[in-house]
């Protein structure tokens, strides 16, 4: 039911996140229908058609209270279930740091995204780094690690298809990672209010097969780095 509305999930942990969303959906959905149903049923069936006396009961004996406390205990148990399922998915996306060959520095600023690739020396933070504006190219099926930085205010890197969201806070470098499972072009949105251009702080992430990615790398990063160093 929710799946129709959520954009397709194309990252390795996306399914795990969706799984938690569904789990919550079914648990609270059940209780929601139950409470809403009882509310409507009790209300309508108690409608005063002719003068009728309500049933006097104060719900203060343990037996009566059990009608409420037992379901509440069940809810407590289910809550903990949601917590533990959520914990696993969270750990996977936010705490795990899978090894990776591709490291990209992301710089957010009013109002665009800068993606910095290591140049021919394979190291970030050197003179041959290449900056690509608003377009993140990544290979399919490879772990990509991001280091998120902001030049001004708080932004938030939001890639709905990857189920990846992470605020980008000035003054710290926040790590994030993903592994895409389907080639294609997906959108990046900024999901933290960052000023008047917040609404249009759009980027794209292009997931390419290994060959396409190498080709793009060659043409745009390695080559660009060469030409700029040649020009010096």
């Amino acid at each position: 039911m929710l799946a129709g509305w959520m954009p397709q999930s194309v990252s390795t942990f996306g399914g795990k996140i969706d799984h938690v969303v569904y789990l919550v959906f079914y648990i609270v959905g059940f209780f929601f229908l139950l409470t809403e149903g009882l509310l409507i049923y009790f209300a309508l069936s108690s409608r005063r058609k002719r003068p009728r006396r309500a049933h006097y009961n104060r719900g203060d004996t343990p037996r009566e209270a059990a009608w409420i406390l037992v379901p509440a205990l069940v809810i407590l148990g289910l809550d903990l279930g949601i917590d533990s399922a959520g914990h696993r998915a969270w750990e996977l996306e936010k705490s795990a740091r899978p090894a990776s060959a591709i490291e990209i520095k992301v710089v957010a600023k009013q109002f665009n995204w800068e993606f910095t690739y290591a140049g021919p020396d394979g190291k970030l933070g050197t003179a041959d780094d290449v900056v690509v504006e608003n377009e993140l190219h990544v290979p399919l099926g490879k772990v990509v690690r991001l280091s998120l930085n902001s030049e001004d205010v708080i932004h938030s890197l939001w890639i709905p298809n990857f189920r990846l969201k992470q605020d980008v806070v000035p003054g710290r470098a926040i790590p994030a990672w993903f592994e895409a499972t389907k080639a294609g072009t997906y959108e990046i949105a900024c999901s933290e209010l960052c000023g008047f251009g917040h609404y249009s702080m759009r980027g794209t992430v292009v997931v390419q097969t290994e060959q396409d990615y190498s080709k793009w790398m060659n043409d745009n990063v390695l080559h660009a780095a060469n030409s700029s160093s040649a020009g010096q």
């Binding site: 509310l39 009790f42 209300a43 409608r47 049933h55 379901p71 509440a72 809550d79």
Partner: peptide, 25 residues
């Protein structure tokens, strides 16, 4: 998420109040 427990108690108690009552809408 644990806050749902006391809230559920309050909500269930409200609903139980309506059970076998004599409501004027």
């Amino acid at each position: 998420i644990m806050i749902s427990v006391p809230f559920a108690i309050i909500v269930f108690a409200m609903i139980a109040t309506l059970w076998r009552s004599s409501i004027r809408f």
